[in-house]
Design a protein around this nucleic acid. Structure first.
Lengths: 123, 123
DNA sequence: CCCATAGTTCGGGATATATGAACTATTGAA
DNA sequence: TTCAATAGTTCATATATCCCGAACTATGGG
C-alpha cells in the first residue's frame, strides 16, 4: 500500500486547516478524534450526526484531514487508526484548534436548544 | 440596488467562517478590515499581497465574507464601505477570530523569514 | 443628459466534491 | 495455499463551486 502522506509541522497552513474544518462532517470527525483518548478507525464514522456517510466519501474526508496536517493515520492490521495532531499544532498555532473546537461546541449547543424549542415534549 | 444581505448574529456558523477564511485573499482582506479603524472600500484591495485581483472576483470575495457574517457593508455614494463584525462575533464565538488572525500572523512571519533566507541581500 | 467611477451580475471554462462500483490489502479460517 | 470477510482506496462521472472577462447597474458630478 502507498504510504500515507503527512505534512511536516512547518508546512501546515491556516488555510488548509480552515478548509478542512469548513465541512461539518469533517469538523465532527475531527472533534471526536481530538477528544478521543486513543486512535479511532474510519468506520467509527459511517454515520455522523444521524447522517450516513458512504465509505468512499469518508476515505476522502480522512485524506483531507491528513493533508491539512490535522490528523495522523496509521494502518493497524486491516483497519486504519487515526489520532489528532492537536498537540503539535498547538506549538505552531497556539490556541487555534481549541478556539475552533470551542466555537463548534457553542454552535452545537445552540442547535440543540433550538431543536428542543421546536418540539418541547417527546414528539 | 438589491439591498445587501447580512446574516443575524445567531445565524453565523463556524463552518461559514472557516470557509470564508480558508481563502488566502479573503483572509488577507478580512485581516486588514479587522485592523482598520474605519470602513474600507472594495477597491482598496485591487492588489492583495502583490497579486492583482479582478474586480469581479473581489466582489464575490466580499459577498462571501458578508454571507459568512464576517463583515458589514453599506453603500456610501458610489462606493461600498465595509467593516468587520468582529466585536459581535466575539460575543457569539469568544476567541475564535483572534485565534485565527493570530495564526495567520504567525504563518506570514514564517513566510517572510523563509523568503529572507532565500535571498539574503537585496537580490 | 452624459460621462466617470465603483461594484454587481452573467457566462462558461477550469477545478473541486460526492459517491457507487471496482479494486487492494490484511486477517483468519478451511 | 486458497477462499472469504473486513476495512479502506481508487476510479469514473455527475454535480457543484470558483474564477474572471464582458456586459450591466447605480451613484455623483459637470
Amino acid at each position: 500500500m502507498k504510504p500515507l502522506f503527512h505534512p511536516a509541522l512547518a508546512d501546515i497552513t491556516v488555510e488548509g486547516i480552515m478548509h478542512a474544518l469548513s465541512d461539518p462532517v469533517r469538523a465532527a470527525i475531527y472533534a471526536e478524534l481530538a477528544d478521543a483518548a486513543d486512535a479511532l478507525t474510519c468506520s467509527t464514522f459511517l454515520t455522523v450526526r444521524d447522517r450516513d456517510i458512504p465509505k468512499s466519501t469518508l476515505s476522502q474526508h480522512f485524506k483531507t484531514l491528513r493533508d491539512a496536517g490535522l490528523i495522523l493515520s496509521e494502518r493497524q492490521g486491516v483497519e486504519m487508526k487515526s489520532i489528532s495532531r492537536c498537540k503539535e499544532i498547538e506549538t505552531r498555532f497556539p490556541g487555534l484548534i481549541p478556539a475552533i473546537m470551542g466555537a463548534h461546541k457553542i454552535q452545537l449547543m445552540g442547535k440543540k436548544k433550538a431543536a428542543a424549542r421546536r418540539k418541547p415534549a417527546g414528539t
